[in-house]
Design a binder for these strands. Structure first.
Length: 379
RNA sequence: GCGAUUGUGGUGAAGUGGUUAACACAUCUGAUUGUGGUUCAGACAUUCGAGGGUUCGAUUCCCUUCAGUCGCC
């Protein structure tokens, strides 16, 4: 018995996008959904109460980071991640595979796992599929990820083929090591870079292991958007319709809409909260770099069409001042707004799917930014 | 009043008798996609306190002047 269940409720007649519900041990959530990222058991600057208030469902946390600090055994001792951070909604943990790829300059990938040095003090570390699952079991998230290798784009076909085959073997090992599949759903991660044949092979290999959900990894690593959309379009008819599909690390507004159209149910991304901390917000009229001098005397809200806490109470001029002075309240307000914006965008996407008009919604949304091309940068 | 010393962009400062006057911070623009609040990229002194002189050429040498700092009466 799987810990989660995906229920496909409606398919958009205009685009084929999926509206559904994801039932987890900590609540049921409508999809497609955006999951805010809280790497170190907190969405930076936001409290769990804030997240609840803005309607966040599942949030992400991270195996690698929590393993190093404060340690998964400590989290287990605290009663698990939900209790530790006072979040009674869904949690998903990433496996650490991506961090090995993105944070460590020195790493040696072997069949049994990866040797690398941590990003804090350079200590030698070793992470394997079994070890990652063990940590994730201790953390206790509702949805957990297989330990994968995230190859760069570009990489040779030969390299990526070896890589996905190893990642599939790792996925199988993780499945065997998994202690409580009835409480935590383990997802396999489809890799394959930009090669459609390898993406297909990766998906089919993982599907033969019958995971309760499938992640699509290794995208948004610097490739053109078109490459990503091609991969999604290819995988869409291959992946099972009765399981959730999770596109990892993607979350610019245009990619969220395009991903939904291409059959994705779940997204996560640090983009919104990261650019928030650097003084940029997403608005219904496009990106606004609130740090810019032109907003010094702009006493209107961040987004005139937004009714979030930040927009209802504070002006661009005030927020710009706070951000310029590196006051923490400033980046809290921008983080709040961007997270709200992305959650709200997905709400609109779901409504559009239910009304069979996601294609129209996409056109309207893109037009507002002056985008008429799915491959445009957007944000 | 006398003596010494220093004057380089918003700030702190390098530097040289000879094409675009280091660097840092600040400022101004971009960027950031399974998160170190990080990091990266670019812009920013027609000009070296002011005036005069020497020189082919002076921010650099000389004179005057102004301003600051320290010391002495």
């Amino acid at each position: 018995m799987s810990a989660i269940r995906y229920e496909l409720i409606h398919t958009c007649k205009q685009t084929g996008a999926r509206y559904g519900k994801l039932h987890t041990p900590h609540g049921t959530y409508e999809t497609p959904m955006f999951m805010p990222v809280g790497t170190l058991a907190t969405v930076k600057t936001l409290s769990p109460e804030d997240l609840k208030e803005m309607g966040a469902g599942i949030i992400l946390s991270n195996t690698y980071h929590l393993w190093l600090r404060p340690g998964d055994d400590l989290v287990k001792e605290a009663g698990g991640l939900h209790k530790f951070m006072n979040w009674d909604q869904g949690i998903l943990t990433d496996s650490g595979g991506f961090q090995v790829f993105s944070l460590s300059k020195f790493r040696r990938i072997e069949e049994e796992g990866v040797y690398f040095r941590n990003h804090i003090n350079g200590d030698k570390l070793f992470l394997s599929p079994e070890k990652a699952i063990q940590i994730e079991n201790n953390l206790g998230a509702d949805i957990i990820m297989s330990f994968d290798e995230c190859p760069p784009i570009p990489a040779t076909h030969e390299y990526v083929k070896d890589s996905i085959e190893r990642t599939s073997r790792w996925a199988e090992r993780g499945l065997e090591a998994h202690a409580n599949p009835d409480k935590q759903a383990l997802f396999g991660i489809v890799q394959g870079g930009e090669y459609l044949d390898l993406r297909e092979q990766s998906a089919k290999d993982l599907m033969s292991l019958d995971f309760p959900g499938y992640s699509i990894g290794g995208l948004s690593v610097g490739e053109p958007k078109e490459t990503m959309y091609n991969v999604l379009a290819h995988l869409n008819p291959i992946l099972p319709t009765n399981k959730p599909r999770y596109l990892m690390g993607v979350g610019s507004p245009d990619a969220l809409i395009m991903g939904s159209i291409l059959g994705v149910d779940m997204f996560d991304c640090v983009l919104g909260t990261r650019i928030a901390r650097n003084g940029t917000v997403m608005t219904s009229n496009g990106r606004v770099v609130i740090k810019n001098a032109k907003y010094a005397r702009d006493f209107g809200p961040l987004d005139e069409n937004c009714d979030c806490y930040a927009c209802k109470n504070y002006s661009r001029a005030y927020i710009r001042h706070l951000v310029k002075c590196e006051e923490t309240f400033g980046i809290r307000l921008t983080s709040y707004h961007n997270t709200y914006f992305l959650l709200n965008l997905m709400k609109q996407v779901r409504e559009a799917i239910k009304n069979d008009r996601l294609g129209d919604f996409k056109e309207e949304f893109f037009a507002k930014y002056g985008l008429n091309d799915a491959n445009s940068r957007g944000f």
